[in-house]
Design a binder for these strands. Sequence first.
DNA 1: CCTCCTTATGAAAATGAGTCTCATTTCTGA
DNA 2: TCAGAAATGAGACTCATTTTCATAAGGAGG
Lengths: 148, 148
Amino acid sequence: MATKTDKAWAEHALAALQEAGFKRGGARTAVVEALAGHSCAVTALDLDHELRRRKPAVGRASVYRALEQLEQLGLVQRLEVARGTAGYERVEPGGEHHHHAICRHCGRMVPFEDSSLERAIANLSAEMSFEVTDHDVILRGLCERCSN
Amino acid sequence: MATKTDKAWAEHALAALQEAGFKRGGARTAVVEALAGHSCAVTALDLDHELRRRKPAVGRASVYRALEQLEQLGLVQRLEVARGTAGYERVEPGGEHHHHAICRHCGRMVPFEDSSLERAIANLSAEMSFEVTDHDVILRGLCERCSN
DNA sequence: CCTCCTTATGAAAATGAGTCTCATTTCTGA
DNA sequence: TCAGAAATGAGACTCATTTTCATAAGGAGG
């Protein structure tokens, strides 16, 4: 799990976008770069605020558009981080991924990964009459700090 | 998994509400009864429309309030059924519960349950420095009909 | 290096789910 | 029966996300 700007992911994402037929555009590139700088989920509005103050300001619509395109290509993962608010985070090319435990009280998000959980989901997916391409697992409760 | 109006659940829920210190109120009771009539997730707005046409019309605010209270008491489960839209469904007292596979294309929701998945989550929850009280698992992909 | 057409953008207005406020009505315990 | 606490319904409001639309880049073919 990267914690610093993930340049490799950014390049991978930009290449994938180009391959998908998108033209190079400043706004989309800015969104990719911004995402590369966050190791866990960020909301679209956070990105919007972060990018609004750039030299050529990025519009909110562009942020949402870029996120949607990235999600379609499997480059970012979308998840509900709070009631009615989505968070987005980059997906590592390797396929390795994590899930989240979210605190009901303070909203803190703790990432985790678990192979037996992934295995159970893989087996299950294989047995269903449903073509499963993705999955989300969210644990909810109280984080260490709030459980007292 | 019940398919017809689940009277037992409704009674259980009303009793739990009373025990939690809530007074008896027409709106809340109406919401409980409406939920008892749906075996899978319904959106708050669907319930609102369903209840708005009653003798003493139920207001939207009451529907949301009731759903929130029911969720707090663990009587209903909330999940995101579409971008920015939550669905609610009753939780059977026994503790048995199911998760959902949602079709990206048509939105169809297929419920499923899997004990090894539950086991993996239980083990995981026990090991985390996080007090896990609930979990959501959502599989996304294409349903039988849309995968062609 | 130019053109023309397509795609990308940003600002602002539109949507739509969910929340809040507040004047009333309904419960419930005393 | 009464008073105080809860519960309600309308409608205004918030806020994330989407749509619209006029304008500004890409970039393939000259």
